[in-house]
Design a binder for these strands. Structure first.
Lengths: 194, 194
DNA sequence: ACAATTAATAGACCGCAGTCTAATAATGAA
DNA sequence: TTCATTATTAGACTGCGGTCTATTAATTGT
């Protein structure tokens, strides 16, 4: 048991090839847009076509991995053990999400686009991007309910869908996702007496 | 002045070719999905490739025209001169929108998808689909505000973005768009005292 | 009749993502 | 050492949307 993971038979994968592919793919897409060709990516990474397709089944899956690994996509999960109004917590969270998204908004739009004609990719995107963020917002909203900040009879999952939906709607229509919009969204979601 | 519109010089366009293209394109896409090839569409329509591209610049634009002309995409605009709560009016409207969308949900998802890599198509989709529906909802919400059904300090455009956003969010995630969801959406949008 | 103009046709062509093939390279096991 | 196994490589190949070319057809104006 000297190797980190159980060593399979045969020639091992070249980890540097994986790193180079992710790095060069993300760099080229940021520089030239998603239209950059696979040929250009493998040339920049110095590997063959098959080496890419041994690791990822589509360009979109390569870029999704690249973005999650090389861009700091992960936003800090709100700490609900701390005191203070949950409305402020959610505003801060959504502002951070928008902030991170703004840097690679084009790529995120392309991911949602690709998911529409590739069910496998839709599932991956859902598991890695959509559901985690949805669960975080639902948790904050439930806590807000417990604290009496929003009415008991409302459905946190529905509110989360409206917040994330408005986020996607503006993203896909190429409209700005700024701090004011995040605040307005949360304000409206928390509006009214508990 | 015997012709309906001013007759340009040269050979006139064959209107039947346009009709056949829209009809066969929509039929084939409904039967086989958007992946159906241009070659199959022009063969079914009995025209040449160039005849299609003389009329539409992409497959998506052909299908958008086809859907708007051949599927009854237009939902009745709510009559705000009638009495009665605007909440019910909006619920009915959103249910009708969902009902129409359900028949060609795959195609609508593809339109949003294509709009992400084709700015010209995004503009067309926005003008013909997004903005008209947005304006209708904003009008109903403004009327609801005037009638005291929702608070004066809320922003109808934001509420519409949350409603349509949640609609798109569920559409793009391939989750059901049913009557219950329409009602829940409108109920939450109208919640709280005016 | 004839010229000018625009449409329609068949089919070649381009660049693309993704697949496939055949040869070679690197590893563990026997 | 040899074998089995998996990775890598170069490059051919497929099917696609969309473009381009050359030829022919239909219309208006003179």
């Amino acid at each position: 048991m000297t190797q980190e993971t159980t060593q399979a038979a045969g020639r091992p994968r070249n980890a540097e090839a994986s790193d180079a592919l992710k790095r060069e793919a993300l760099r080229l897409v940021r520089e030239q847009g998603y239209g950059v060709s696979i040929a250009a990516i493998i040339k920049a990474a110095g590997v063959s076509r098959q080496t890419l397709y041994n690791r990822w089944s589509t360009k979109a899956e390569l870029l999704l991995d690249a973005l999650f690994e090389l861009a700091d996509m992960q936003v800090a999960i709100p700490d609900l053990s701390q005191p203070g109004p949950r409305r402020a917590v959610l505003t801060t969270y959504m502002r951070e999400v928008f902030h991170h998204v703004r840097k690679d908004a084009d790529l995120l739009r392309i991911f949602i686009s690709q998911a529409q004609s590739d069910p496998a990719f839709r599932a991956v995107l859902y598991d890695r991007f959509v559901e985690p963020r949805d669960l975080i917002v639902v948790d904050v909203l439930r806590d807000a309910q417990a604290r009496g900040e929003i009415a008991q009879d409302r459905d946190p999952a529905l509110i989360s869908a409206m917040i994330h939906g408005a986020f996607w709607y503006r993203l896909l229509l190429d409209l700005p996702l700024d701090d004011d919009f995040a605040a307005a969204l949360v304000e409206d979601a928390f509006r009214g007496a508990a």
